[in-house]
Amino acid sequence: MRPSKARSVPGAGLLSLSRRTWAALAVLIAVHVWAAIGTEFSPARFARLANSIELLTRWWPPAWELADRILEASVVTIQIALMGTTLAVLFALPLSFLAARNTAPGRFAYNASRTLLTVLRGIPEIVIALVLVPTVGLGPFPGVLALFIHNLGVLGKMVSELIEAADRGPQEAVLATGGGRGHMILFGILPQIVPETLSQAFYRLEVNVRASLVLGFIGAGGLGHELFLSFRVMRYAEVLVQVAAILVLITAVDYASAWVRRKVM
């Protein structure tokens, strides 16, 4: 039988937190209350839920007659996302070895490449695209470049962290054979980071499909452009088909990602 008068013993449980941890939690909660006020967070407003439902009813029936055009736009969207993602992966791989503490050739290269990645990551795609339009013109190409540059920053950081976390064992084994830095990177590290890098690349592809929609708003073409046009003239029946197409694209990328991961892992 369980002895009576059980009580919480300090250090015995999951929630046996120190006074400092409780204080940190209190601060965290306060910050979120502040953010809730700032964002006018208010469940009471759901009283007017009917308004949104009324809007949605105007979306029906879907404008299937536009399916051809939307299919064409979907192809452009996936092409933009694919080019942007693949370029980013190809350039991020070498760059991340400069930006990982254990493989950087020196402190300067490490700091410089880290800073570069942070800057690239910090600039929103849409700003990059807008800046590039005067040079390369409107259309999908500035969209590809914008996705490439932003994702280079994102993937460079992710991959450099994978490199830093790679198991030291195989690297040590390569050094012990008399191999150099190049051998160590190619055989001691690269095989370890390939599966997770691919996984991240597919996740970025999914993110980029959505990001290319926003780029479509500024003329990069694809589904985003179509969505923007239909929204502006309030043709919600078309929007419904476009949203359906987006869902199909995202789901397809997800399946492709799962399939490749199964093959590679």
Binding site: A173, V174, T177, G179, G180, G182, H183, I185, L186, F187
Partner: peptide, 9 residues
């Protein structure tokens, strides 16, 4: 891999 001392990466 034991030949890494003799071949380029």
């Amino acid at each position: 891999m034991g030949r890494f001392g003799y071949v380029s990466p």
